[in-house]
Nucleic acid binder design. Structure first.
Length: 580
RNA sequence: GCGCCCAUAGCUCAAUUGGAUAGAGUGCCUGACUACGGAUCAGGAGGUUGGGGGUUCGACUCCUCCUGGGCGCGCCA
C-alpha cells in the first residue's frame, strides 16, 4: 500500500529532478496523518526539498502535485493481472507548511483487500531481507541453574525477533551459546559433589558461593540413584569432572525443556568447551597476534581493544596461564564471522551492557563493519506479587523460575506481556495481576477477536451463507475463498468499513517497521489496535444479515482480520485459538 | 569519579525514528443487545512529555547542562 504511493511520488520526483537541476532526490518518507480528514497518506518531501532548492515548500509541493497529476493522465493503462497502476488517488491536496496529503480511491482499498484474501499469509510477508544471513544469539544462560523470568523475557523477544526477520526475508540462524567451560560450571559440579557427600554422611564443606537451590540436591540424589556410593569419600580433584559434566548436562537438558515448553526452539547450540577442545580459541588468538593486536604485560596477555574504541585493553590470558572468559568470547564471535553471517545480533541482559565495546572491538578487529553488529539489551524484570516485590537472588537460590511462571500464568500471557514493552525499558511483572485479571488481559482481547471471527464462520455455515460443515473451520474458509472473486466489496461503504480495511492493510507497514528497527513490540501494539477496531465494528454492524451479498462482503473482511491476527500472533509465538 | 540505559495521564506502557491537535490499556465516573460469543462496545474526567538552555519551517524524539532512578566499571563469569 505504502509502496504504491511511494513509487508514484518517486516517479514524479525523477521527472522533476532534471528541471530542478538536483543532484539527488531525497528519500520519500510516507506517513499516515493523525487526523483522518487529512487523507490516507502524507509526504513531507516538499519540506525536505525546501532547503536544497531554496524555494518555499508549498510552491515545491505544487510542482510535485502537478507532476503527479500529469503522470496519472499519461499513465500506462492498468497492468495485466489486476494490479492497479497510477490512478489510485481520489484526491491530492497541499496542507500546512508543505504536506502533500493523498486520499485513496475506495476501489483501491477493495482491490487491496481482495489481494490479501487471495494470497493470504504470503501477502503479509516481505523480502526486505533478500536472503541475507543473520545470526541471532539469545538467552545463552549459564547451565548452572533453572531459567528465571528475566531469561523468559529474553527468550520471548529473541524468538519473536527471529520469526519477524524470517518473515521479512532474512535467512536466520538462532543460537544458544553454552558456557560450559568456565569456573561457573565447575562450581556447580562442586556444589553437587558436596551435597552428594553430605547425603551419605560425609561432612565435606559446601563451597563458598556455591549454588544453593533445591535442584542441587535433586541432582545429587539422581547421581546416588544411578551410581550408588561409588564416589563416596573420593576427593573432588579425583572425581570432580564426573560431577561437573553430569550436573551441567542435566541443567542443560532442563533449560532446553523449559524453553521448548515456552515455545522457544533454537537452530543451533554452540558449546564453549568445544571451541577450546578444537583448538579454535588458540587459533583465534593467533590470528589477533598476527595482526599485532596482542601483547604481554605483567605476565598476562592483553588484547588492544582500545584501538577499536574500547575504554581500555582487556586481558585474555591471566598470569596463572588460564584464559579469561573474554578469550572464548573472542573465539566465539570470530567463529560467527567465519560462518559467513552478514549481520550478527546478540541479545543480552542489560547488566552486560559494559561488554558491548569490547565485543564490538573483536568483531571490528576481524573485519566486520560497525553497523553489522547489533546488541539488543533486555532490561531487568522486577517480579511482583500483589504489588509487592519478590526478592530474587541467584546465589541464595531464591527466585521465581520461568517454569513457575509458565505453570502459573501460561505462556501466551507471559509472552504477550514481555512483548508489549520495548526491550530496553524496565518491566514490572506482577504475577498475580497477570493471573487474576486474566479475563482483561490484553492477550485475551486479541485472541478473543480471532475466536469471535471463528464463531462467525460457524454461524455462517449454520445459516448456509457458507455451505460447509459447522465444525470444520478450514472447510468454511475454503468455501469463502472459492467465492472470493464474486464478492462485491463495494458494499462495504460505512465509515467503519473503511476504518477496519485501513487498519488491516496497515499491517505490512507495521511489520516492516518492526523488522527494520528490531522492535517486536510494534507488532503487539498493532494487534491490539486491530482487535479494537474489529470489536468496535462488530458491536456496531451486523456481519451476517438478511442480505447474503453484504454478509459475504463483511465476512470476507472479517476473514482478512483473522488472517492478519493469525500472522501477527504467530510471529509473537502466541496461539490463535478458534474457541476460548 | 567515569560510562551506558531509562524518566510521557494515578498505575503499566505507546507514539509511524524529526512531522500536523502526544495516544492505548488499567483504575475512577456514566451508559449499551429479546439477533452473529458481554473475555465486547459507547462516552467522560485525567498532561507544562522530570527541569533549564540550544539546533530549525517543526522536538517526546537530536545536542548540552542539571535533577532523580537502574546497571556496569576485576587477570570474575
Amino acid at each position: 500500500m505504502k509502496e504504491d504511493v511511494q513509487k508514484i511520488i518517486k516517479n514524479s520526483l525523477v521527472s522533476l529532478q532534471g528541471r530542478w537541476g538536483l543532484d539527488a532526490i531525497p528519500e520519500v518518507e510516507i506517513e499516515i496523518p493523525r487526523d483522518e480528514s487529512m487523507g490516507d497518506f502524507a509526504t513531507t518531501v516538499a519540506m525536505r526539498l525546501a532547503k536544497p532548492l531554496k524555494a518555499p515548500p508549498r510552491k515545491i509541493a505544487e510542482e510535485i502535485v502537478a507532476e503527479i497529476e500529469d503522470l496519472i493522465t499519461h499513465a500506462p493503462p492498468i497492468e495485466k493481472g489486476g494490479r492497479w497502476g497510477f490512478d489510485i488517488f481520489e484526491n491530492i491536496e497541499i496542507a500546512g507548511p508543505g504536506y502533500i496529503n493523498f486520499k485513496l480511491k475506495n476501489s483501491y482499498f477493495y482491490n487491496s483487500l481482495y489481494q490479501l484474501l487471495e494470497e493470504e499469509h504470503s501477502s503479509l510477508r516481505s523480502d526486505i531481507g533478500k536472503g541475507r544471513r543473520v545470526q541471532v544469539e539469545y538467552v545463552s544462560a549459564n547451565p548452572t541453574g533453572p531459567l528465571h523470568i528475566g531469561h523468559g523475557r529474553g527468550a520471548a523477544v529473541g524468538s519473536a525477533l527471529c520469526n519477524i526477520l524470517r518473515a521479512a526475508g532474512y535467512s536466520i540462524q538462532s543460537e544458544f551459546y553454552i558456557n560450559d567451560a568456565g569456573l561457573q560450571v565447575k562450581l556447580l559440579g562442586r556444589s553437587v559433589y558436596a551435597r552428594y557427600q553430605q547425603a551419605s554422611g560425609n561432612d565435606v564443606p559446601f563451597p563458598e558461593d556455591g549454588y544453593q537451590g533445591d535442584y542441587i540436591e535433586s541432582i545429587a540424589r539422581d547421581i546416588r540413584e544411578e551410581e550408588g556410593e561409588k564416589y563416596l569419600n573420593r576427593t573432588f580433584e579425583d572425581c570432580g569432572e564426573f560431577f561437573t559434566d553430569y550436573s551441567y548436562k542435566m541443567m542443560l537438558a532442563n533449560l532446553e525443556t523449559d524453553l521448548k515448553d515456552f515455545g522457544v526452539i533454537f537452530d543451533t547450540w554452540q558449546s564453549e568447551k568445544e571451541l577450546h577442545a578444537k583448538g579454535m580459541v588458540q587459533d583465534a588468538l593467533n590470528t589477533l597476534k598476527d595482526k599485532g593486536l596482542l601483547y604481554e604485560k605483567e605476565g598476562a596477555t592483553w588484547f588492544s581493544s582500545s584501538e577499536f574504541g574500547d575504554d581500555k585493553d582487556r586481558v585474555i590470558r591471566k598470569q596463572d596461564g588460564e584464559f579469561t572468559y573474554f578469550a572464548s568470547d573472542i573465539c566465539y564471535h570470530k567463529n560467527k564471522l567465519d560462518r559467513g553471517f552478514d549481520t550478527i545480533i546478540d541479545i543480552w541482559g542489560a547488566d552486560h551492557h559494559g561488554y558491548i565495546p569490547r565485543v564490538r572491538s573483536v568483531l571490528e578487529a576481524f573485519g566486520l563493519p560497525r553497523e553489522k553488529f547489533e546488541v539488543i539489551l533486555i532490561q531487568m524484570v522486577s517480579l511482583l506479587r500483589h504489588g509487592e516485590p519478590v526478592p530474587m537472588s541467584k546465589r541464595s537460590g531464591q527466585f521465581v523460575t520461568l517454569r513457575e511462571v509458565i505453570d502459573e500464568v501460561g505462556t501466551d500471557v507471559a509472552k504477550f506481556i514481555f512483548l508489549t514493552r520495548r526491550a530496553d525499558s524496565h518491566l514490572d511483572f506482577d504475577i498475580e495481576v497477570a493471573k487474576e485479571q486474566s479475563s482483561e488481559n490484553p492477550v485475551f482481547y486479541v485472541q478473543y477477536a480471532f475466536a469471535r471471527i471463528s464463531s462467525l464462520f460457524r454461524q455462517a455455515a449454520e445459516k448456509h451463507v457458507l455451505d460447509a460443515d459447522v465444525e470444520d473451520q478450514s472447510a468454511q474458509r475454503n468455501v469463502l475463498k472459492e467465492k472470493i472473486r464474486q464478492v462485491d466489496f463495494s458494499l462495504l461503504l460505512e465509515d467503519e468499513d473503511f476504518l477496519l480495511m485501513k487498519k488491516i492493510l496497515l499491517y505490512p507497514m507495521v511489520f516492516e517497521g518492526a523488522a527494520l528497527s528490531y522492535e517486536v513490540n510494534r507488532i503487539t501494539f498493532y494487534l491490539q489496535e486491530l482487535a479494537s477496531v474489529f470489536h468496535s465494528y462488530y458491536n456496531k454492524h451486523r456481519i451476517l444479515t438478511e442480505d447474503s451479498n453484504l454478509s459475504l462482503a463483511r465476512l470476507s473482511m472479517c476473514r482478512a482480520v483473522q488472517v492478519v491476527l493469525e500472522e501477527g500472533l504467530k510471529l509473537l509465538g502466541v496461539s490463535a485459538p478458534e474457541r476460548m
